[in-house]
Design a protein around this nucleic acid. Structure first.
Lengths: 203, 203
DNA sequence: CGATTCTTTGAAAACAGTCAATCTGTGTGG
DNA sequence: CCACACAGATTGACTGTTTTCAAAGAATCG
């Protein structure tokens, strides 16, 4: 483990202590011993559809994208994961089934990885991890619920407004065509919305 | 506790044993002591938006609906929950925040309820509940993921085709306008799709 | 630079929503 | 048993939104 990795892990340690201040040095050391630190290049793929998702991923720096493929072969963005958030394909990760999703890096990123077995082993030894884990899942479900409600009830403009209000930072960091894809809107429509020409104003 | 309740709980017990056959008589008795059995009428409301969601709900018989309200006041169906499935508002339930969702009964139903505190207490005493709980959450996330992908990538017809292929039973049991709402499509559009007039065939 | 990748534009066509009227079935009370 | 009310479903005409296609313009990475 090199210097860079040490610094990276220290940063992760500070993050995790925010949520679980009670962790002992030994517990932290155990977590560290099971963590894999990884630098990923822009566009590098961390999960390919068809593979079983082997890891839970925490993003220390950078920005990842999770996307699926529709029947016609086009890509659809499921999720953006910026620094200090977690990502995995829960279905594939827990059930060890082939994933239908891809995860790649939009920006060069530093991530921390845990393999399924290591992470599950940590849970049994350090119960605090369950608390954190559940909190994260719950948060995620709340976000997802809002997204579905928006998708079935809002038009392109409203979805975009919600997006910029909720993720102003991500908007600045990802190409617009990915935002369009995340919103379920064509890139041309997104362009037009952004220019205030919600529809071609004729008058 | 009356005869009907006893029979109802027995049925729930059989369900739970499928997943956790190792539960002892004592553990089962403990679960039973914390369960509230309830018969709900058609249209009866189990959660009102604005309230904190106090329960985890298991549907023994019948069919529930979870719905939200859009800005213009119209209702949007988030989820149908038929017998042998669970429902709660995870965000509200875990964080004790006011829910933005409503849960009501589409059919007269029998449900089993656990209050937040009782359920959380059961988890600590019966670790098997965690296993089950996590499995359910993961399943749910898989379903949700597919729904989002469909919503951002498919047109009304494709969404409907997926729905009838995946939930043929529910289609038969709920009014079509609720299916339309679930799909994020107007009831008129749903009618036309069902008649194969995907667009007005002119020739 | 040079090659990609990304964004914008315009025009036409496809798609879906809205409104208003009508139709259908179901169950209730007279 | 009938009539009525009501919730749900359908229809047609119209309007509005969004996609698609093709082309061109900007920005960015290596």
């Amino acid at each position: 483990m090199n210097i860079s990795s040490l610094i990276m892990f220290d940063e992760f340690e500070r993050y995790i202590r925010q949520y679980e201040p009670g962790l002992t040095r030994e517990q932290m050391q155990l977590i560290r011993s099971k963590s894999v630190l990884k630098k990923v290049r822009r566009r590098q793929v961390l999960l390919h559809e068809g593979e079983v998702c082997q890891h839970k991923i925490f993003v220390l720096r950078g920005l990842l994208r999770t996307y699926g493929t529709a029947n016609d072969g086009s890509e659809y963005v499921m999720k953006f994961t910026p620094e200090y958030e977690w990502i995995t394909d829960p279905d594939s990760y827990f059930n060890r089934t082939p994933s239908e999703l891809n995860i790649d890096a939009i920006e060069a990123s530093d991530v921390v990885l845990w393999s399924h077995d290591d992470f599950e082993a940590l849970r049994t030894v350090i119960p605090e991890i369950n608390t954190l884990s559940e909190k994260l899942i719950t948060q995620n479900m709340g976000v997802t619920q809002k997204r579905i409600l928006l998708n079935i009830s809002a038009n392109a403009e409203e979805k975009y407004q919600y997006f910029i209000a909720t993720y102003p930072d991500i908007l600045r960091r990802v190409p617009l065509h990915m935002v369009a894809s995340y919103l379920g809107v064509s890139r041309e429509t997104l362009t037009r919305i952004r220019q205030g020409q919600a529809v071609a104003a004729k008058s």
